[in-house]
Design a protein around this nucleic acid. Structure first.
Lengths: 144, 144
DNA sequence: AAATCACGTTGTACTATACAACTAGCTCTA
DNA sequence: TAGAGCTAGTTGTATAGTACAACGTGATTT
């Protein structure tokens, strides 16, 4: 059990260390889009539009937080709102042309940074690491 | 190269997802000690005391941020300052008895949560995952 | 039709953070 | 050895992200 404990301890520490750095690192890498806005915009793009409520549920954020984030993205011209004709309360959010462009830029820069960081990994290790992370996050989602 | 790209993409997404959740999750798990205070206090405990400047350098935080975090921890009675007799500018920071106790509590709760989350992993997978994370974080540190 | 529910906004407050200006103590050099 | 410059830490100020509560408005249920 000792070895198992050590591994868990390491995973805990490393995941924590990573989390601590991620925001700051994102801010340095692309000041125009914070980690949160990036994530939200990416989700909109990925889903081909969705509601603020969906974003809140998916990312465990308060609806007021999402509301303000979206307001900021709209002000920057990265997101547009389309009122759902079937339910006047609902705004379906979409990336604008400009938003999609910025998102693509940032994604490319992030991808490059990740590729750099993982350049000397062989394919098997990358594959296993990716699988472990998915498994880990899925477990966390269930637990939270 | 396609497979390699897929793995990198997954790693990127999953690391990002993790980072997004970590703070909120930490706050829910132990409201008395934020992710940052926890990390700082743990470092003090681990290092058997260190300076504010060391904490700032190690965690890439501004010294003012560390100063305020430490002030808060001191106010809670979790940290004490000992002036270095050889250099009157320097305060060596140490966890108090109470701070060490709270830290141990939180660490135990965190460890339990991590163990739960990783309960159905076999030892080899845990070991490899831990190794990958260390390797990844080391690469990130060099890149930042 | 009234009560209730869902979606989103706004007011307020708090935390984490950075940067700049500052004080006090140390060190090096002319 | 006196002053210049460096280092450790604090404080003022500003910003971002977040939550919670109160609210308005539109939809649904009874």
């Amino acid at each position: 059990m000792a070895h198992r404990d050590d591994s868990v301890e390491t995973i805990q520490q490393e995941m924590t260390a990573f989390a601590r750095r991620a925001r700051a690192s994102a801010a340095r890498m692309h000041p125009e889009l914070s980690l949160v806005s990036y994530t939200l915009l990416a989700h909109l793009d990925d889903q081909h539009g969705c509601r603020a409520t969906d974003l809140a549920a998916h990312y465990l954020l308060d609806k007021s937080t999402v509301s303000r984030q979206i307001a900021a993205l709209e002000k920057l011209g990265f997101v547009e709102r389309r009122i759902d004709p079937d339910d006047q309360r609902v705004q379906v959010l979409h990336p604008t042309e400009k938003g999609a462009q910025v998102l693509a830029d940032v994604t490319a820069r992030r991808r490059l940074a990740f590729h750099d960081r993982l350049a000397d990994w062989n394919e098997d290790d990358l594959d296993r690491f990716a699988t472990y992370l998915e498994r880990y996050n899925a477990a966390q989602e269930r637990q939270d």
